[in-house]
Structures are given as C-alpha cells and as structure tokens.
C-alpha cells in the first residue's frame, strides 16, 4: 500500500436491519474515501447511518453489499484493526477493574509489551485528564471519566488512524476542550481521524473535510472551506451624498433602501471588496461593512431542511 492509498475506502455500501417486512435499509449504497493524514467529520441526524457505517468499518456488523476496506484490508479483519484506534459511541468499561488494569489489557491486545505499558500508561492518563485516577475501580468513574478512559484506550497504541463514534458524548466543556487538544495534536502528527459527531462546531474546528449523510445516503462531501464558501455573507451599508452617482460596477447589485441609507449583500468576498472600493472612490459614505460566515450547523440544517422540503414551505 502506498502513502496515497486511502486509509478508509467505502464503495457502494448497503446495510439492512431486520428481515422480511420489518427490513429497514440503514445504508443505501454509500461510497467515500478517507486519505492518510486527513481529519474527516461524518455528520448526520440521528438514524442517518453514521454509527452503522462505523460499525461496518470495525467489523461489528456485516454489509449486504459493497466493498469496505481499511488500510487496504477487508474491514473487520484482525489485520485491518491493527492500525486503528476506536472509540465507541457509548461504552461502559468493566466496573470491577481499575483504569491501569484496563489499559494494560487493551494495550496488550494492541500488541504493546508490559514494560512499554508500564511506561506509557501514566502519561496517557494524564493526557486525557485522569492523572492520579489509575487505581480507582471503574464502577466509581463518572460518565465523563469513562469517556476520557475510552479516548485513552483508543490512542494507547498510537494508531495511525482513529475512528471515533460520537466524539464528545458525555464530556463536559472542559472535557471537550481537552479532547480537542488531544485530537489536534494527533492531527499535527499526521494521524488520520474519522469521526461522527453531533457537535458541528467541533467538526468545524477540527476537520479538513466533511461527509454529510442523510437517511443512509451521502448528500455532501466537501472541505469545510468549500461548504462555507458559497454561504459567506458580506454586506455594505452606505449613503450617497448629493452629486455622487452610484458607480456602474455597483449598480448591477440589488440595492435595498433603508431610510436614507442603502444596503447591498454579496456572497463573494472579491465582489464585495471591489464594490466597497468603487463606492469609496466615487465618494459614497460607507456607514458599515459587515461580513458574516454561516456556521456549518446553519449549513447542515439548511441542507437537511432542503432535502426534507421544509425550506419550500
């Protein structure tokens, strides 16, 4: 496998749940790739098919149709899991075990030696905010602490790729911040990250690329920049003193009269800049310039509403 080969390759994946009349199509022929070093966010509403896709990647459920590969190996095989760190959406850890013991087991299963684990576990626990908690039974851990431990078990063997299902479930704001730091650090070190999340601000902050899934189908796949670009909103509010004529280059845009002031909206930063320069050169009084970038959340809601037909109402 070369460096340019995808870490995750999903082609025409179909997954059904149930049988006969109760059969529900969870994934309907989705295809996508995640390249080495990329951080990709997998977004979708509840029941869109995010967890199902991740479960197929991990070999927990079996597709009806399609080809799913991880590091060039068939998804779900032992070989494919050798280079992945995985955090499930919700997982409890053995309540009668201590964090150190649990990490020794997970690390051992990942092929780390006893000596290496002895050396690595304390700083790892510190990294996820569980320093000094290694000897506490997990039944006494809070949900947030369990989630932090989940992150620790996922990154214990310093895997080349991380697959996180619902990234920050159960974490408080501090936990989210810590997790973001850990992920940014991993990203800087060239690790491939693929995660599903409801927290679109998180996706926006971390991801290079976003895949949006809706009702088992991929509806958008683009970089965060690309998604936000057509939605950038720029505004200039100005007035024309007596004798000043609206430049012809600006007159082509739709003017909204607001008292003795006028307002123009732009979706393109270049057009906006040119118009502001032209207005200033012509002697117009610029009262306010305004730029607003819509969030990914707004984009996502708009997209889903558009698909569902809500936007047409």
């Amino acid at each position: 496998m070369t460096d340019t080969a995808p870490v995750i390759s999903v082609h025409d994946l179909v997954v059904d749940y149930g049988r006969g009349k109760k059969k529900v199509r969870a994934l309907d022929g989705i295809s996508f790739k995640v390249m080495p070093g990329e951080c990709v966010g997998f977004i979708g509403a509840n029941g869109a098919g995010k967890t199902t896709t991740i479960k197929v990647l991990m070999g927990f459920i079996f597709p009806l149709k399609g080809d799913v590969q991880v590091f060039g190996e068939q998804a779900g095989t032992v070989a494919s899991r050798r280079r992945i760190g995985y955090l499930p959406e919700v997982a409890l850890y053995y309540p009668f075990m201590k964090a150190r013991e649990l990490l020794e087991i997970y690390g051992g299963l990942s092929g780390l030696s006893k000596d290496k684990l002895k050396e690595d576990i304390p700083p790892l626990l510190e990294k996820v905010g569980l320093a000094g908690k290694s000897e506490i039974l997990l039944k006494n851990y809070s949900k947030g602490m369990q989630q932090r431990l989940g992150i620790a078990q996922a990154i214990i063997a310093d895997p080349e790729a991380l697959i996180f299902d619902e990234l920050s479930t159960g974490l408080d704001p501090i936990g989210r911040f810590d997790l973001r730091s850990v992920l940014l650090n991993l990203k800087k070190r060239g690790r491939t990250i693929f995660f599903s999340s409801h927290e679109l601000t998180e996706v926006e902050a971390l991801c290079d690329r976003v895949i949006i899934i809706h009702k088992g189908r991929i509806v958008t796949e683009a970089t965060v920049g690309e998604l936000k670009k057509p939605l950038n909103l720029f505004e200039v509010i100005f007035s024309l003193p007596e004798g000043v004529v609206l430049p012809t280059s600006v007159a082509q845009y739709k003017l909204v009269e607001e008292g003795n002031q006028q307002r123009i909206e732009f979706n393109n930063v270049e057009e906006y800049s040119r118009a502001v320069s032209a207005l200033a050169s012509a002697g117009a009084v610029i009262h306010r310039t305004f730029s607003k970038t819509r969030t990914l959340e707004e984009y996502f809601i708009g997209l889903v509403e558009g698909i569902e037909g809500v936007g047409d109402k």
Binding site: V78, G85, V90, A91, Y94, L109, Q153
Partner: peptide, 14 residues
C-alpha cells in the same frame, strides 16, 4: 448489554 465488547473487538483480536 454494556457494550464492553466494542473496544475489545476493535483491537486486533479475532
């Protein structure tokens, strides 16, 4: 039930 199986079988274990 407790989903403890997920992180275990996510490791290279058959």
């Amino acid at each position: 039930e407790n989903r403890t199986i997920y992180p275990l079988l996510a490791k290279p274990v058959g």
